[in-house]
Structure formats: structure tokens, C-alpha cells
Amino acid sequence: MSPSKADFQVVLGQARELVKDQLAMTEWVIMQVAENAPAGISDRLVSLFGRKGKRIRSTLLCLIANCGANAPDKARVAHACASVELLHLASLVHDDIIDGTELRRGQITAHKEWGTQVAVLVGDYVLSQSMRCVIDEEARNVPVIISDAADKLIVGEIMELDHCGEMTLSRGMYNEIIDRKTAALIEAAARIGGIMAGFDKPLVDDCARMGAHFGLAFQIIDDLLDYGFGSKNLDKAKFTDLSNGLITLPLLYYFEDCSAEERSEMESLIKRVATDDVAGEIIARLNAKKSFEKAKAEAQEHLEQALQIADKFPKNNFTDEIVAMFSSMSDRGN
């Protein structure tokens, strides 16, 4: 399978158009959560839910769900998608508090707008509601899949904090952190999509593996975008990871290919990343070691693995869009 490259945002728009009815119902389910919330929470949720992201996870779930022999029940798919998106949003609200992020999706973050205490509790409420969305799901393993994904997100965040600023972070630990923090929820969305497509267990497991590879690639590209590598109209501040002491894949590649003196100099630069021109020096050193290119190649490897699994799916328009999403991911600019 060797599909042609295309702009990721264009491809994602085409994918969303293909499953627009299910995504529209997903938005309705999400807004019902806001409208049915108690006073003092409802208006905040309406504001929060109005800041729509790319809906990558729910779009992937919908595409996979429609790859089977029979069209899935739209309400089941919509509630599953809403659960995934609400869990993702709750994690973002909490992550922004932990990271001290002031901008998300081009708008002021929840904790900056409402204060940290309220934002924490709003995030908790959204997390609770994400579970409620699938409480009546007929496939009884779906709520467990969502709960497991939530556990992994939380553990991944704790692991990241435990290793914050650790210049000797291992590749194994880095992979475990991003597997939990990012890939786990995309893996869950893909697994649920396979269940709703009516796939047999081996193919459902393949869907999960495919989602995990896609999620790992997604996070690695995010690591690159944080440095401005390949970025275009980025809706969040650059160098957030470095400023928060997070050692990500480009730096890991650099440390694998540098002298003791270069390591010492880089560690010193990282500690002064907020200083004028220091970020530029870090980027120059990473470019010199081709660290960005190596990280991008690793992301591409994960995407190739995902594409190989997608090749097992029935051939239809939905599978074609999945392939197009995977093929264009490595060149996304935001």
C-alpha cells in the first residue's frame, strides 16, 4: 500500500465529511452534557465544549465503525465518540493546569479564565460524564475500555511528572509515557470502532494496535511541533515542553549522538531555555545532529505499521480515508 501524500488538515476534513452525521450526533450528545449540568457548571461547559478540537479520535472511531459489513447504530457510535472526546477534554483541562499553559486551541485556557480550583473541578465533572456516556452501551467491555484508557492517561501524567527534568531519561521510559499519555486513548477509540464495526476479536485487537501506532506517531509529531519543526499556524505556544522540563524524542536522539561536553552544554542550555536566543541555539544543535529528522523517521515507522494493519480491513471509502489520515499525519503542521 503506497498512497499519495496529502495535507493532513484537508484529509481530516474529508474524513469528517464522510462521517458527518455521526459526528453531528456526537456534538449533540456532548452539548446535552453541558445543558443538563447544574447551574454554575452548565455555562462553563458550554464555553469549554465550544472550543472544538480536531476530533481526530472520534473521527477515527467513526471511520473504523463504518468499515464493517453492516452500518453501525449511529446513537451507539455517537455516545462512544462523546465518551472519548470528553475524556480527552478532561485530560487537557488538567494538563493545562499542571503545565501552566495559557493558550489552548487559540483561546485562553480554563484555569486562566476561571481559576485553578474551578478548572480542576470542571475537569473532574467532564471526566465523570465521559463515563456516563457509555454506561448503557450493549457491548459491556466498552465502558471498561474507556475506564482503562482514563487510568492510563492519569498514570502517564504522573510518570511524566516523576521524570520531569530528568536529562538521563531512557527511550523505554519515554515510550511508556507517551504510550499512556497519548496513544492509550487513540488505541481505545480504535478498539471501540472495531467492536462497533462487528469485527471478530483478532481484527478488533488489530484495530487497537493500529490506533496505538497512530497515537505514538501523533505524539512524536507533537514533540517536533513544540520546537517549531514543521509547524504551521500552531495554536499553542512553542517550547512548552522544554520550559516544563520535558525531555522528548528529538533530545533523546541528540543525547544518543553527542560527546560528554556537548551533553553538558545542552543540559545548561535547556535550563536557560526562557533566555533570549537560547531556544534558537538548542534548535541549531538538534538540527546539526539531524535529531528532528530521526524523530520524524520514527513517527513514520509507526505510521507504516498502522497502514499495514489498515490493509486488513474491508476495502471501502471509510478504509480509504483511514489510509489517507495515516499517510498524511507525519507532515501535519499543527
Rank of each mutant, 00 (worst) to 15 (best):
Q308T: 13
E157V: 06
A208L: 02
H111V: 07
L86H: 03
I177Q: 03
E138T: 14
C164Q: 09
I135C: 12
A37M: 14
T101F: 06
A299W: 08
E27S: 03
S291A: 13
K290Q: 12
D276H: 14
D96N: 06
L161E: 10
K20M: 09
G194L: 01
F8M: 07
E267V: 10
I158P: 10
Y254I: 02
G40S: 04
K201Y: 12
L92D: 00
K271T: 04
D206L: 08
L48M: 07
Q32I: 11
F313K: 00
T116I: 13
S130V: 02
M25V: 10
R171H: 15
I322Q: 05
L87K: 04
F199S: 04
V144M: 14
L60K: 08
M266N: 03
E304H: 11
N175R: 14
A260Q: 12
G40P: 02
R191A: 04
I64S: 00
D179I: 12
E85H: 10
D151N: 13
L48R: 06
L87C: 10
S91V: 04
Q9H: 15
T168W: 14
L18W: 05
L63Q: 00
L242H: 01
E27C: 01
T182C: 11
G13H: 05
F313M: 05
I108G: 09
Q22G: 04
C62A: 06
L246Y: 09
D162N: 12
I186N: 02
D21V: 05
K236V: 08
L225C: 09
L12P: 00
A197C: 10
D7M: 11
S42H: 01
S330Y: 09
E160L: 07
A279G: 14
D136M: 14
N175L: 13
Q117P: 07
C258N: 06
A288V: 12
D148W: 14
T182K: 00
V29N: 07
G40C: 06
T168V: 14
I56P: 02
